[in-house]
Design a protein around this nucleic acid. Structure first.
Lengths: 188, 188
DNA sequence: AAGCGCACCGTACGTTCCGTATGGTGTGAA
DNA sequence: TTCACACCATACGGAACGTACGGTGCGCTT
């Protein structure tokens, strides 16, 4: 049985939160891990079902009211999660940036130059996202962002700032400075 | 008719390269745009077919030897590409980083601490990728990386360096310094 | 306390994506 | 010449995705 990364995400969330319904997971992921691992919420209904079929989650059906399933971790599920956490990580991080694609193809298709507008949009978007991350940092008390997990926010922030630097330099026409600054930094 | 981002990627590549077979596109993308927009090569056989059905690409079948289809841009295809390039970009960039997920869930599942090993792996991987990018920069003569498109490499490099800084700091236990350095940088 | 409106919750469904696996095609070496 | 291997193309099944819709119950109004 082959588990996808999303499977482990579900296992991990259940491990963090304890017994959860898909909707619980939906709410919890949308304001935490969902920021760096996006997926449709329907996965949170189908995926636990599959995991339950493999014995990695246990299901508890609520008999009254809204049909609703509560999933909890089995010993096998916890073992699978731990094994995954301890295993080497072959996959390099992936990104999909539509703006970067447009920049790449820009010269190909457009008679007038769309780059400045694109850069401005991106600057605004990354600034917005940085604000979101900072907000998450500030309310580090809640369950989704207890202390140990706050570290990942720093990675998100580093990435956002990197992108922001790039688009800002592009808008200002000072791309060459980026490389120089990186070199300086490496020397230190 | 709704086009996916991958559709535009195909249109863009054909626009850059001129008439191309799926395999041409496969080779060209694997060492350029594939680095920041990953997808299976089978898409490069199915996607052009769909685009041809919509009239955005024209097909030319080779009659002899290997069955092989050459796709070229139609005026409608070029128009669609230009429209996309000029349109606002709503999507924020997405990333999927398995290592980040593991870091997030680490506390949840593992009795012993897997983080140092994880960090070391990531440092190595990002350094490798940086070398690849630098190599691409150095051979900026070839068709896939003609001058205008080299700019996107700088974005890739900024992101890789950001990630590398993070994992290095994590391994060294100096995460707090990252934030301080960012603040200093913002002030300048 | 009955009715109503709306936010909440779950799932169905059609499409696209994805990975794997396989088979055909040409070319260079022995 | 033939054999091996890299090159090229596609089939196929399952997972992911987005959208859209239908059910459910809570709170508000009167």
């Amino acid at each position: 049985m082959r588990l996808s990364t999303t499977s482990y995400l579900v296992l991990g969330m259940v491990a963090l939160r304890g017994p959860s319904t898909p909707y619980d997971l939906k709410r919890a992921t949308s304001r935490s891990v969902g920021y760096f691992w996006n997926f449709p919420h329907t996965q949170l209904y189908s995926e636990p079902e599959r995991l339950a079929a493999s014995g990695l989650l246990a299901v508890d059906l609520e008999d009254s009211g809204r049909r609703r399933k509560t999933y909890s971790l089995t010993p096998e599920g916890r073992a699978a999660l731990q094994e995954w956490l301890a295993a080497p990580t072959a996959e390099h991080f992936e990104m999909r940036d539509v703006a970067e694609l447009k920049l790449f193809f820009n010269e190909a298709g457009s008679p007038d130059d769309d780059v400045p507008k694109l850069a401005q949009e991106q600057i605004r978007q990354h600034e917005e996202r940085i604000a979101v991350y900072e907000d998450m940092v500030s309310r580090h008390g809640d369950e989704d962002w207890a202390r140990p997990r706050m570290i990942t926010l720093e990675l998100g922030l580093e990435m956002e700032h990197a992108a922001l630097r790039f688009w800002t330099a592009l808008a200002a026409g000072t791309i060459e400075d980026l490389r120089r600054e990186r070199d300086e930094r490496d020397i230190r």
